[in-house]
Structure formats: structure tokens, C-alpha cells
């Protein structure tokens, strides 16, 4: 049978089949719109979004007293060595020698950045390299200048007790140093045992060692 001059049509079954396929496609389309929230985004009802943000945090250490200067001195007569010790913010003391402790205060280090940090220290010379002679000692001791400044100690021998300095690698002496004002300061004290028999290349010549103090991401 023809309609308005057209060629004969297809059977009703084929039309139904096409209709089912069309409805199926429509369902998939609507489902994809809803499931992937295209409708929400296009109408301004998106439920979430993303912000890409990178934070750069600068750790800042302030070494207020950065020089331990014992000046000139000698081992007392009849003794084999002299012991020089710094005591935080107080003047240094000596035993068996005549050095002056007036300018020999402990190093005062503060974390003045905006986050907690770890604190590592490394010496440039060993005791033998510093003084030579018989039985030299070069040690340090890290302690809280502000109560509870260090929330987690690192190398156990370095807090409260003098321990030989680290030369080959930096020693993590505090895993978490606070950054809040009034609770972020630490002292680094030194104990020097100076032998009486230093060699001629060291005697009467200024001997110095550089301490490297590093602040990095807190480890605790």
C-alpha cells in the first residue's frame, strides 16, 4: 500500500524494532547525562570542583650567636690538657687553662620559619684535625633554650650529654623543632679538650672550625 505517492512501507514489526532501538538509545543518552553530571554542570549545579595549589614553604633558621670565640690561652703548667666548655647563654668555663670564656657562649639557633623543622649539624674538623696533640676532644651538646622547643630528639648522644662532633655526615639532633615564638630556640654547646703538646703549625695561630646547621622537613 502506498502513502501520498510514496513507495510501499515496511512492516509494523520492523517499525517496532526501530522504535525499541530508539528508546534504548534515548535511555542510554539520558543515563549518561545524569550519571556523569553533565546536566548539573551545564545548569550550574556541579557538586564538586578542583583547585590546583602548590605551597612553597621556606624554612628559616636564625643563628643569633654564631661564633664561639675563646681567644688566646695556654694549658696550665704541669697539666696535659685544658677543658673549655660553653654553657648556653652564660659565659664559658675553663679548667686547666687561662682562656677567657667571655665571648664563648653556646650557639643559639631559632626556627623562625612557618613550620616545624628538623635540625642537623655537621662539623668541619675532627678533634685531631682541630688541635692535634695527645688526647684532643671536640664535642657538642644540643639542648632546649626554650622549654620543649625540640619535640622529638634525634641523635640520642647529643642532647644533655656531650658527644663527639660528626664530621663525615650531618647528625640529625632534633627531628621536630617548634616554630612558635618563645618555644623555638636551641643551644649548641661545645666541649674542647686542648692538649698541651699541639704541634708548631697549630700553636700561636688562630684555629677555627665551621659548623654547618641545616633545617629541613620535620621528621616526626
Amino acid at each position: 500500500m502506498k502513502y501520498n505517492g510514496e513507495s510501499e512501507g515496511v512492516s509494523r514489526n520492523i517499525f517496532n524494532l526501530a522504535l525499541v532501538f530508539f528508546i534504548f538509545a534515548l535511555i542510554i543518552f539520558v543515563f549518561s547525562l545524569i550519571y556523569f553530571e553533565i546536566l548539573g554542570e551545564t545548569t550550574g549545579f556541579a557538586s564538586y570542583g578542583y583547585v590546583n595549589l602548590t605551597i612553597n614553604t621556606q624554612i628559616t633558621l636564625n643563628v643569633t650567636n654564631n661564633t664561639v670565640n675563646w681567644g688566646a690561652g695556654m694549658v696550665d703548667a704541669g697539666l696535659v690538657n685544658a677543658t673549655l666548655i660553653t654553657h648556653g647563654g652564660s659565659i664559658g668555663t675553663k679548667t686547666g687553662g687561662n682562656w677567657s670564656g667571655t665571648n664563648a657562649l653556646g650557639l643559639f639557633v631559632e626556627n623562625i620559619g612557618s613550620i616545624n623543622c628538623s635540625l642537623s649539624i655537621q662539623a668541619g674538623k675532627s678533634a685531631a684535625g682541630f688541635f692535634g696533640g695527645t688526647g684532643p676532644e671536640y664535642q657538642w651538646n644540643v639542648s632546649n633554650a626554650h622549654a620543649n622547643a625540640c619535640g622529638d630528639w634525634g641523635e640520642p648522644s647529643s642532647h644533655g650529654l656531650f658527644a663527639n662532633v660528626n664530621v663525615s655526615a650531618a647528625a640529625v639532633v632534633c627531628k621536630k623543632l617548634d616554630f612558635h615564638s618563645g618555644q623555638r630556640g636551641m643551644y649548641i654547646d661545645f666541649r674542647l679538650v686542648v692538649p698541651y703538646d699541639v704541634n708548631s703549625t697549630i700553636a700561636n695561630v688562630l684555629q677555627a672550625d665551621t659548623i654547618t646547621i641545616s633545617g629541613d622537613t620535620a621528621l616526626a
Binding site: 614553604t57 633558621l61 675563646w70 688566646a72 682562656w99 654547618t212 633545617g215
Partner: peptide, 16 residues
């Protein structure tokens, strides 16, 4: 995190 590095000095003169 950008680390910080500072230095300090220990010095003395040993007169025999």
C-alpha cells in the same frame, strides 16, 4: 619545603 642552611664558627688560639 625549601631547606635552610646556616653556619657558625668555633675558634681559639693555643699558646704553648
Amino acid at each position: 619545603v625549601i631547606p635552610a642552611v646556616e653556619s657558625a664558627k668555633v675558634s681559639l688560639i693555643i699558646n704553648p
